[in-house]
Simulated scan of single mutants.
Amino acid sequence: MLHSRTPSLSVARTYSPLPVTLASGQGAWVTDVDGRRYLDFLAAYSAVNFGHSHPRLVAAATAQLQRITLTSRAFDNDRLGPFAEALASLARKDLVLPMNTGAEAVESAIKVARAWGYRRKGVPAGTATIVVASGNFHGRTTTIVSFSDDPGTHDDFGPYTPGFRIVPYGDIRALRTAVDDSTVAVLLEPIQGEAGVIVPPPDYLPAVRALCDERRVLFVADEVQSGLGRTGTTFACDLVGVVPDLYVLGKALGGGIVPVSAVVGNEDVLGVLRPGEHGSTFGGNPLAAAVGLEVVRMLASGEFQARSRELGEHLHERLRALVGQGLLAVRGAGLWAGVDVDPSVGTGRAVCEALLARGVLAKDTHGSTIRLAPPLVVERHEIDRAVDALEDVLTR
């Protein structure tokens, strides 16, 4: 019999989950197999931006399940076109390359950038370089972990893919030094999620955009976690008025129902790919496109961005009041926060376990940092309940 503290021995041990087994969810709440309810303040790393079992998304998925779910890209389907048009409009771009996971979308953007470099910029074949940032997290494929500086993600998975340069995040001088004639793209998270919700200086992304324009280099923004309402704007880049050449999207694009990701850009960049050079059996499938279309329609109203912005102000105000009372620092934007726990209180994992005992789910990273990312449907009193629980843990 399932029990909330008995993980399956048949699952490969690539995670060390908190001792809870979830069985259902509604809105900002989830319920375990023993019937206990928890406030979800992780939202599946922002994949559940619209809450669990959102009726509009469930209805879109259910309707499509009864029609057709997979055709492969050997044939067109009647959901893909409307989805691509709506997403392109939301991002103010021309084209959408549909994939499944965030890592797939990042890999796709890397291929696009290299092809663009060879076919448009004139970089000699096989010499293209891409500049990335320290502390990055773009996925777990072998190419992507090649340019990670996190030992737990990187070590023992070589040989590593060449062609990447790592510079300090937020350091425009280091970036300028790293960009040369072989550089085809700068790949960055506008806000680094896995690193602990690290927000760069406000002039950093505009300076990146200007440098890329000056040196004829693509600016690729990985908005897999930060995009689609999480930061109080449609994209985190919107916070500083920057438009990248390519958006890399995922997680929330699938509404917490199916894996959906995409690379979004203009014809002069994304149009470099030719038929047969890239693809995915499941990318752009009718079920994914139907759910993704409904996600874009929900974002088009601006309601969720406004909720994230307004409730995020309250969340951050409450959290900042805990600095000096068990917290060392608070960072973030919208309904997204990274909080550094005073080591004298305990590790991030220990604090998350204590929160679990108080009915709140959160996730630690890098030892002493906790990420908080409730669904955008969360209510003000639910934020207070979660922060009250955190305060109780920190000051007990």
Rank of each mutant, 00 (worst) to 15 (best):
A306D: 07
Q64K: 05
V224F: 04
T347L: 06
P151L: 01
V96I: 09
E317F: 08
L270T: 15
A61Y: 02
V323C: 02
F83H: 05
D268A: 03
V30G: 02
A125P: 09
P286R: 03
V260W: 01
G152Q: 10
C212V: 07
G122H: 13
A350E: 13
L211I: 09
G284K: 14
F157W: 07
R79L: 09
I166N: 01
E104S: 12
Q305I: 07
F164D: 14
G256H: 14
E104Q: 12
L361P: 04
F157H: 14
V208R: 12
Y45D: 08
T177V: 12
D245W: 12
L205D: 14
R209N: 14
A125L: 01
E223H: 11
S24A: 08
R165D: 05
G35D: 03
P151Q: 05
T142K: 10
V220K: 00
L299D: 06
D156P: 07
G35A: 04
E277F: 06
T69K: 05
L205T: 09
P82Y: 02
P159Q: 14
L361D: 01
N77A: 10
D388C: 12
L211Y: 03
A91C: 14
T365M: 10
G302W: 01
H3S: 03
A178Q: 05
L205A: 11
L218S: 10
S280D: 13
Y169N: 07
R209L: 12
G229H: 11
L322P: 06
G265I: 11
V30R: 03
E379T: 15
T127M: 03
S16R: 11
F147Y: 13
G158A: 01
A207H: 08
S226G: 14
R385H: 15
R371V: 14
V242Y: 15
L65G: 13
A113C: 03
T347S: 10
Q325E: 13
V378I: 12
D388H: 11
L372G: 09
E353Q: 02
A174S: 15
N49P: 11
G292L: 07
V242A: 14
F304S: 12
A289E: 05
F235V: 10
P124Q: 04
D245Y: 13
V393E: 00
G283Q: 11
A350C: 09
T281L: 08
V269S: 09
L90Q: 15
P190W: 03
L355R: 02
E310I: 10
T101Y: 04
G122Q: 13
V339I: 12
V131G: 00
G229M: 15
I130Q: 13
H316F: 06
S89R: 15
Y247I: 04
Q64T: 04
G196T: 04
L394W: 11
A63G: 13
R320G: 09
R309M: 07
L327T: 08
S148I: 09
L246N: 09
V377N: 07
A290E: 07
E267G: 10
P19N: 10
D171A: 03
E382N: 13
A300L: 15
V296T: 06
I191G: 01
I191V: 08
S226C: 14
L394F: 04
H54P: 07
L319A: 06
S146L: 11
A329L: 13
A128M: 09
Y118R: 04
I370T: 06
P159G: 11
V106T: 06
